[in-house]
Simulated scan of single mutants.
Amino acid sequence: MTTELPRSLDGTGPDRLMSVVHRLVGGVEWLHRNSRRRTAPPSPVDRDIPLVISETRDEADGVRSLRLTRPGGGPLPAWQPGAHLDLLLPSGRKRQYSLCGRPGERSHYRIAVRRLADGAGGSREIHDELAEGDRVVARGPRNAFPFIGGRSYLFVAGGIGITPILPMVRTAMARGADWRLVYTGRSRASMPFLRELAELPAERVWIRPDTEFGIPAAGTELLAHAAEGAAVYACGPVPMITAVRLALPVSAAKGLHWERFSAPPIVDGREFTVELARSGRTVEVPADRTALEAVGEVLPDVAYSCRQGFCGTCHVPLLSGDVLRRSRARGDDLALCVDRGRGHLTVDL
């Protein structure tokens, strides 16, 4: 397989720094794949749950939490740390938000949403248009970031990435496991749930805002808090995840499990086409976009969740064509979010 170098910001040539980072990340990919315990992709959860927003709360600058309950009361489906909801908004938008309440609490769900002024509109709708008493529909819960039992953990969260990590920390405490938490962000004002974290043992929690240190944390700095053999659970922006992955081989940690809130960057894209057999349409997928994005423009209801290639939600039957695998999809499936075609593909959509 040949690989294109990432382009520089002005588009005039290869970005040498990012090319080096890309090769380094690829070099540790084997270690990640073999240190992370394999888990089967979760089965799709298609039940629709009508919910009412029973409480909203500002948790940080630009971050609001929503407490969601059944309109008539009653228990909600159980969930495990790392799980999220597909939230179907009144506008028709569908967004995924991690559950960040207390595991085992079934009277309500809690999610937290950062308002993105230049986003696709879902966070703005939640912040600007929804209020207590409004109704939404959720699908799930489903879990693409499962928390696996162990004796020692290092949790690394960046900004809104604290949402799936917080239930994991509470679960580790309840199990009596050894754990540490490193929480980074631009500033304390931008970091949600600091009041709740202040209730945890101070010697186990390190709050590291960039404004107090001058620069973002390096991967070695983050992993320096890992006990020997600790499992690392990380959630946050792509640069933070990349830094942790690069530093993992020289740390005391045993393995890495991560989730990010954006799709992985496309660094070696090639144009290809996807024929939708049942719809009778053919979609062109540009080199810098995913099949999920392109197909979503003609089939807005196409299901997806993690956008990282492992949850299984967007897997569709592959009828023909040669696939460049970036997922754990079976040989007769295509993961629309990350898999790419070599030429022309036909899928059952």
Rank of each mutant, 00 (worst) to 15 (best):
T2V: 12
E4L: 09
E4W: 00
L5W: 10
L5S: 13
P6R: 01
G11T: 05
G11F: 06
D15T: 00
L17Y: 15
M18H: 10
S19G: 11
V20T: 11
G26M: 03
V28E: 02
L31I: 11
H32I: 09
S35Q: 06
A40V: 05
P41D: 11
A60T: 12
G62E: 06
S65P: 01
R70Q: 12
P71S: 07
G73R: 09
G74Y: 13
G74N: 12
P75H: 08
A78N: 08
L85R: 03
D86G: 06
L87C: 13
K94Q: 13
L99H: 07
L99Y: 03
L99T: 03
L99F: 06
C100V: 13
C100I: 13
G101T: 03
E105F: 00
H108P: 00
R115I: 04
L116P: 00
A117M: 03
D128W: 08
L130R: 07
R135S: 13
R139E: 07
G140H: 06
G140P: 02
R142V: 05
F145G: 00
P146D: 13
F147K: 02
I148C: 04
G150S: 03
R151Y: 01
L154E: 09
V156G: 00
T163R: 06
P164D: 15
L166H: 07
M168W: 04
A172M: 04
A174T: 09
Y183W: 11
G185V: 08
A189F: 05
M191H: 09
L194E: 08
L194N: 11
P201E: 04
A202R: 14
A202D: 11
W206C: 08
P216T: 13
P216E: 12
A217S: 12
T220V: 14
E221A: 12
L222N: 00
L222E: 01
L223F: 07
A226H: 01
A226W: 03
E228H: 08
G229Y: 07
A230Y: 06
A231K: 09
Y233W: 13
A234C: 14
V238P: 01
P239K: 11
A247P: 00
A247Q: 01
L248P: 02
V250N: 11
S251T: 03
S251M: 06
A253F: 03
G255H: 07
H257Y: 14
W258M: 08
W258I: 00
E259T: 10
R260H: 01
V267D: 10
E271S: 14
E271D: 14
F272K: 12
V274D: 07
L276C: 10
R278H: 14
S279G: 14
V283M: 10
V283I: 14
A287R: 15
D288H: 15
E293W: 12
V302N: 03
Q308A: 15
G309I: 02
C311H: 07
G312H: 09
T313M: 09
T313I: 06
C314K: 02
V316Y: 04
S320Y: 13
S320Q: 15
S327D: 08
A329R: 03
R330Q: 14
D333G: 04
L336E: 05
C337I: 03
D339A: 04
G341M: 07
G341L: 04
H344K: 15
T346C: 15
T346K: 15
